[in-house]
C-alpha cells in the first residue's frame, strides 16, 4: 500500500524562510518526517513520495497550490495521505489542514495530519481529516509520529479508528453509534450518583463552552475620559513598517498619533480581505481619528490615547485574536485608558 506525504520547505529540507515561496514539488522518496513515519510503519506500507511546498507559496496562492498538490496526490495512487505534523506553526498548519481536508473530501483518500490545539489550521481540517494532537513545537516530533503512524495504519487497513481520546486525535464533531453493555438510563443514574458523591465522571455529550465577558462599567464622565482607537481593519503607516500580515495576522502594531488630527495621508490599509481603495484614499473611514480629535477639541471627550493599535482581522485565528486582545488590553489598562473604540471591516 502506498502513502504520500506532505511537508513544508523547512521539513522538506529545501531551506528556511527564504525558500517559503517555493511552489509544490514531488520527490520520489520519504523526506524529513516522512522518513520517521516510514520507519514506524515498517514494511506494512511504503511512503512512495513526499510533496514539498513553501508555506508562503501555499498561503498566498491557495487555489493554485491546492490544485497542483491534489493532482500530485492523485497521480501517485496513494492509499493514505499524511501531512505534517505542523505543531503550532500557523502557515504550515493552514497548509496541512487545507490539503488534508481537500484530499479527504475531493479524492476520498483517507487523510491524516497533526497539530497543536491552538493551531489556526485545526478548525479547517478536523471535521474532514484526522488531526492528531501534538505539542506546540517540533521538539515533540518523537511523541507525535508514533500516534500518527498507529492511526495511519488503521486507516490503511480500513479498521475503524477508536474514540478521539483513545487514538489521540481531535474530535471531529461526529456522533457515531457505539454499543454499550448498559442502557442509557443506567449510565445516566450512575453518572448522577458519581456527581452527587463528587467523584470524577466523564460526560457522553460535552456541551459547547460559551465564554461571555460581563459588560464593563460605563464611563461616568466622558469629558474626562481618555479614549483609545483600535482597529482590525489593517490600517498602518504608509510602507507598513512592522510588516503586519495582510491576512492571518501574527502580530499587531502600535503607532504614535499624539497631536495628529487625522490618519488620512499618512496611513493606508494592508488588509487583504476588502477593497482597499476607499481606506487608502481616507484611512479615517476605517479608523476615525479625525472625528475623535474633533470631539476632544470640543471637550466632549477628555483625550485621545496617544497610541493607535492595529492588526488585520481577516483569516486571523481566534487564538491569535485572543492573544492580541490580551496584550493590547494589558497596555491600555496599565495606561489608565477609560474606554476603547474598536472598528472592524
Amino acid at each position: 500500500m502506498k502513502i504520500v506525504y506532505y511537508v513544508n520547505q523547512f521539513f522538506g529540507q529545501i531551506g528556511g524562510e527564504e525558500k517559503a515561496g517555493t511552489p509544490p514539488q514531488y520527490v520520489d522518496k520519504a523526506v524529513g518526517p516522512a522518513g520517521g513515519f516510514q520507519t514506524l510503519i515498517k514494511d506494512e506500507a511504503q511512503v512512495v513520495g513526499t510533496i514539498i511546498c513553501g508555506d508562503n507559496y501555499f498561503n498566498e496562492h491557495k487555489e493554485v497550490a491546492l490544485k497542483e498538490i491534489l493532482a500530485m496526490v492523485k497521480d501517485s495512487g496513494a492509499d493514505l495521505f499524511v501531512a505534517g505534523p505542523a505543531f503550532n506553526a500557523g502557515r504550515y498548519g493552514m497548509a496541512c489542514a487545507q490539503v488534508s481536508a481537500a484530499v479527504q473530501k475531493e479524492l476520498e483518500i483517507p487523510a491524516l495530519t497533526g497539530m497543536y490545539e491552538e493551531n489556526p489550521g485545526l478548525e479547517e481540517a478536523r471535521s474532514e481529516a484526522y488531526v492528531i494532537k501534538t505539542g506546540d513545537s517540533a521538539g515533540t516530533m518523537r511523541k507525535a509520529l508514533p500516534l500518527m503512524a498507529a492511526l495511519g495504519l488503521k486507516l490503511l487497513k480500513k479498521v475503524a479508528p477508536g474514540l478521539p481520546s483513545e487514538d489521540g486525535y481531535f474530535a471531529q464533531g461526529r456522533r457515531v453509534t457505539v454499543f454499550s453493555d448498559k442502557r442509557g438510563s443506567v449510565r445516566a443514574v450512575e453518572m448522577l450518583l458519581k456527581r452527587l458523591a463528587e467523584e470524577p465522571f466523564v460526560t457522553e455529550l460535552p456541551m459547547p463552552v460559551f465564554d461571555n465577558v460581563p459588560p464593563a462599567q460605563a464611563i461616568a464622565d466622558l469629558s474626562k475620559a481618555t479614549i483609545a482607537l483600535v482597529t482590525s481593519g489593517g490600517i498602518v503607516p504608509l510602507g507598513n513598517p512592522d510588516r503586519i500580515q495582510s491576512a492571518s495576522a501574527q502580530k499587531w502594531g502600535k503607532y504614535d498619533i499624539s497631536g495628529k488630527k487625522a490618519l488620512k495621508g499618512d496611513f493606508y490599509t494592508i488588509h487583504g480581505g476588502y477593497d482597499p481603495v476607499y481606506a487608502n484614499a481616507y484611512a479615517d473611514r476605517v479608523a476615525p481619528l479625525d472625528v475623535l480629535y474633533e470631539l476632544k477639541e470640543e471637550g466632549i471627550i477628555g483625550d485621545v490615547y496617544p497610541y493607535f493599535y492595529t492588526t488585520t482581522g481577516t483569516g486571523t485565528s481566534v487564538a491569535s485574536s485572543v492573544a492580541f486582545g490580551k496584550e493590547i488590553g494589558k497596555e491600555l489598562k496599565e495606561a489608565g485608558v477609560s474606554g476603547v473604540l474598536l472598528t472592524s471591516t
Partner: peptide, 15 residues
C-alpha cells in the same frame, strides 16, 4: 480582541 480588552474592565464599543 473586543472581549479580551473588556475583560480588563475597560468599556469598549465595537463599530
Amino acid at each position: 480582541m473586543v472581549k479580551e480588552i473588556e475583560r480588563y474592565g475597560i468599556p469598549i464599543i465595537h463599530m
